[in-house]
Amino acid sequence: MKITFKINDKTVEARTGWTVLETAQHYGIDIPTLCHHESVTPSGACRLCMVELKEGNWSKLVASCIYPVKEGITIYTETERVSNVRRWVFEMLLSTCPASAKIRQMAANYGVASTRFPISNPDNKCMVCGLCSRVCEEVVGLSAISVVDRGVHKKIGAPFLRPTDVCVACGCCVSVCPTGAMQSFFDQVRGEPSMRLTQLTRQSAQEVKTS
């Protein structure tokens, strides 16, 4: 079924099942994203893709990657309200993961160079969007890594934060990671090659260690 609506005053035609982000990108309108990857279902974690939706006399901000298209709505991707939200998001991201070059660069595009929030770990790159764990589950079909803990303690990890033999070392998580954090974390998930193959080799490695 065809759905007609407007993005930045340009009339676009979508079909049922498309999201606002997908429609915008299909028509060549750029919306910044971090936690969005085509291979998995969107989760709306990073809130960077926020856009302003006007319907009748009122407007609201929605995350475009998970917002399904609707007949007659108007979307604005770069209003003052939207960039205000994005600047806030960037400031928060800069406090969580100040080490990520990609985030710093994107933030600079919005004029955000520093953050007013406290930086707890200046070397952190991970923004805990959970994209890696979604890829592991949906694309690879495993759950070697997942988001552990809640709230401000949330982090990405293998069970018990130890190398896991569930991991097949396919590296899909490294390839999708938007901030480059997974590259350094990957070895902690897959472990040493000798640990990875089978428990048998692990056993013999242990024998060597103890003898």
């Binding site: 690879v140 079909g141 495993l142 097949v168 070392a169 396919c170 990875r196 193959l197 089978t198 428990q199 048998l200 056993q203």
Partner: peptide, 18 residues
């Protein structure tokens, strides 16, 4: 049996489950 004088730990080529 995959290795002589070892236990039979599930030894299966580690490829993607699908």
């Amino acid at each position: 049996v995959h290795q002589e004088q070892k236990f039979l730990t599930g030894h299966h080529a580690r490829v993607r489950p699908e």
